[in-house]
């Protein structure tokens, strides 16, 4: 039984990691191409979840909702890129942090204005309900396996997009030399809008997928946002590969910490105490891991640029 539980927890860690990857990929892509640090990424995640919940409630179809979440987040991303973000590329990180912090306030309060203060309902589609047997004798939720599948597909898709397509070529060029590709006649303004909208759509997708598991409510993006930042900092800002490795590392460390630390302390003290101390340490664990990694490698594991 312990083996089964262990396997299940590893799967849980992977699934959390994949979800973080969807957030972190957009964040790190935007940083890599435009050098922009975007705190409002969590708001785009929230936009995706709200769009999915609203459309799913109106049409009864989760899949239409999922499409709507991609569209809504991409549109929201494109709009803020054109209105606000565009003016920040040449600014320092301080201005970027502040302006996107302001966007968080606007998005959160604006969403509450539109949708009210009560959480929305969103459930997983009937096709993905239920559980499947896993090695060791336990069962695992099909929907979570599907999320892992989506994460793998997105990772492969992004890899192909960047290494094989014309857009990817421009993105890579934009990462290495901004002036040069402008001089070569690439419309850099449109390129940036497209990249930003792509990152936003990924965040929206994550929001919709996770919205079915959690509660669709204002402020849902903030805890994920901070975790996603931890992920890209560990992985090396600007590196998609780093984001993937970092996300899986954070997902596994966090899940296993929550699972194993209280048991570890249980050897030393009574279960109630152990739960408290272990739980406390587990909540700080990923930050400790991050500090250690940056102590050894100040630019993260796979630094793309400084």
């Amino acid at each position: 039984m312990q083996t089964a539980l262990f396997i299940e927890q590893v799967l849980n860690g992977l699934q959390l990691g994949v979800m973080l990857f969807l957030m972190a990929a957009g964040l790190t892509l935007i940083f890599g191409v435009m050098g922009l640090i975007n705190l409002a990424h969590g708001s785009l995640y929230m936009v995706g979840a709200f769009a999915c919940a609203t459309v799913a409630a109106a049409t009864g179809s989760f899949w239409l909702g999922l499409a709507a979440s991609l569209a809504a987040a991409a549109a929201a991303g494109a709009i803020i890129e054109i209105l606000v973000i565009r003016r920040l590329y040449e600014r320092d990180h301080l201005d970027q942090v502040l302006a996107t912090f302001a966007l968080i306030l606007i998005f959160s309060e604006g969403t509450r204005w539109l949708f009210g203060s009560f959480p929305l309902y969103l459930d997983i589609p009937p096709l993905l309900r239920g559980t499947v047997p896993i090695p060791g004798g336990s069962r695992y939720q099909l929907y979570r396996l599907a999320i892992i599948g989506v994460g793998v597909a997105v990772a492969v898709g992004l890899f192909l997009l960047i290494s094989k397509t014309r857009l990817g070529m421009r993105i890579r060029a934009g990462e290495s030399d901004r002036e040069m590709i402008g001089a070569l006649g690439v419309d850099i303004r449109t390129l940036y809008t497209v990249v930003f909208a792509l990152g936003a759509a990924l965040a929206g997708l994550a929001g919709a997928l996770v919205g079915a598991l959690q509660s669709v409510q204002v402020g849902m993006g903030e805890p994920v946002l901070i975790l996603a930042f931890v992920v890209i900092v560990i992985g090396g800002i600007g590196s998609i590969k780093g984001a993937l490795v970092g996300a899986l590392l954070v997902g596994l460390v966090d899940t296993m910490g929550r699972f194993l630390l209280p048991q570890l302390f249980g050897l030393l003290m009574n279960p109630s105490q152990a739960g408290l101390v272990g739980g406390a340490l587990a909540s700080m664990l990923i930050y400790i891991v991050m500090a250690v990694i940056l102590w050894v490698r100040p630019q993260g594991l796979f630094a793309a640029r400084g």
Binding site: L5, E8, Q9, N12, Q15, L16, S138, Q141, R144, V210, L213, Q214, S215, M220, P223, V224, T255, R258, F259
Partner: peptide, 11 residues
């Protein structure tokens, strides 16, 4: 917001 680890322990 994610309780998969806890649910596994409950199971």
């Amino acid at each position: 917001t994610d309780y998969a680890a806890e649910i596994a322990q409950i199971r």
